[in-house]
Structures are given as C-alpha cells and as structure tokens.
Amino acid sequence: MGAYAYVAPQSVDEALSVLGEQASSGTRAQVLAGGTDLLVQMRSIDRGARTIIDIKKLAETNRLDVGADEIYIGAAVCSALMNEHEALKALLPGLMEAGDLIGSTQIQGRATICGNLCNSSPAGDSIPAQIAVRAVVDIANASGGRQLPVEEFVTGVGTNALEDGEFVLGLKIPRPAENSSDAYLRFIPRTEMDIAVAGCGVSVTLAEDGTCSAARVAIGAVAPTALLVPAAAEALIGSKLDDAALQAAGEACSTASSPITDKRGTAEYRRKVVAVLCRRAAAIAKQRATGA
C-alpha cells in the first residue's frame, strides 16, 4: 500500500502547515473527518499512500453554535451530535433531516455534513439542504481563510473549489428569520441506506398574511452537482404557496435538471420525481414555518 502516515493536528495552524508541506513536496495529503467516504474509498477505488490529516481534534471544527445572527456547524461535528441539538432541530429541520438520512445510526455517529460536501458526490444528501438554507463554507488557508457559498463550492462530480493547502473549518448559516423553515426530501428505491435518485431542499419565509416573502430551492442527484434553482424560488415568492405556485416551482426544478439514466432510474423518471419532491418539500417547509 506504500507509505501511509496519520497526523492529528491540535491547531488550525498546525493542520495548515502539514497541508502546506505536503503541497510543496508534491506528496499526497488528505483530510479525514468522519471517514465514512474516505475509508470506503481507501479500501476500494483509491488505495494510494498518503498522509491522513485528522481534523477532529481542533476547537474550531468542533464548534456547534446557534448565535443571534449566525449558526456555525464545525467540520468535525457528526450527524448524530447535530441531531441531538434541540435548538438546531427547531431552526433548521430540513438540514437536520438531510443529515439524518445519511446512512445508518453507525454512519451518523461519524459522518459530517462538511465531509458530505467535500466528497462532492452529485447525490450527497445534505448538499441541496445546505444550499437551501444559504450555508457558506468557512475555508482555512495560509492567507487568513476565505468563504464561499455552498452552491459555488462543488465544481463537478467529486471535485470542489478547495485549493492545495486549504481545508474546511465548518459551515456558517444565517439564523433563519421568524416564520421561516426548511425541508429536504429525497427519493430512494429502499427506505434506508441507499443513494438518492433525486433530492430537493427548500427553505421559505412567510409574511404575516402567509405570503411567501423569501425562498430558496436546490436540487440534488439530477445534475453533475447540486444546483440552486432561482426560477423555482421565484415561482414561490409572492405566492401563498398554493398548488399553482408549487406546481410551477416543481416544473422549474425539472427544467433545471440534467439527469443521467442508471439502474436507479431513467433521466425522464428523475426529472419527474424531482418536481414531486420540490412540491412536497415546499409544502412541508410552509407547514413548519406556520408553526403547525
């Protein structure tokens, strides 16, 4: 298997300097969070030697804060821990349910939503949910760090905007306004432990009279990357989230998608299903936002 090494830095600077050394010496380094993608890949499709940098010992990556303006979910926070946080569940139920869909109890005991994002699979369940709630990626690098909206982070199948020497510290999410909520739905052939055929995350904000004043819609597994669908949000904004508006938003999702055909479903089927998921997720988000 060649020369593997394992390091668990105690500070962000130390992690960055290990990443920097690897980049300048041309050897391979890879960040480890929950390992639920990485270890599977290490045993199957990607056996090459590398230095594994475990980022779970850093104070920054273990942050889980619900602030007055901003929510922070660190890159070492596993799904199970996230879903035990009552305030988070109340504020971001859609993102939490996306985390709760990833694998079994055992997988959720390790898997992080930042790892889901960095793995950058088209079917990564939490990615559309992250986009729907306006999550921004907090990236550490040697020049003081940078921030990037999630919808700009994934660049293709399994590729993302991280440069050599960078890693993700966590996600910053604006605290949802009053009368806001979100939802995420996916379709899989089984009820547990499968890869999404299509997924859709929706967030909505309602005015006093129930009119939708803000919305975000994102789709997954129906294009090379998860996509923000502005046309779907526009169909919802200004409406009472009635059937006609939901129908229009669903159609916008179908139009925005460019799915593939594989054993889990044909392109045509996926295009249909993503519209259904959008309508249902929007209806759930609405119901949650009204506090029902």
Partner: peptide, 26 residues
C-alpha cells in the same frame, strides 16, 4: 468492511460506529 452491515459495531465515547470505518489511530 464498507459500513453496510454493522457486524463490526463498537462504541467510541458511547457513540455507536462501524469499526471498519474508523482508523486504529483515531
């Protein structure tokens, strides 16, 4: 050996995990 079957279940700090997806070093 890939996280699917749970035969390797152990707890780490009381959290249930698949030991096939954790490094010994962790």
């Amino acid at each position: 050996g890939s996280g699917d079957c749970g035969a390797c279940s152990v707890t780490i700090d009381d959290r249930l995990v698949c030991s096939c997806l954790v490094l010994g070093a962790e």
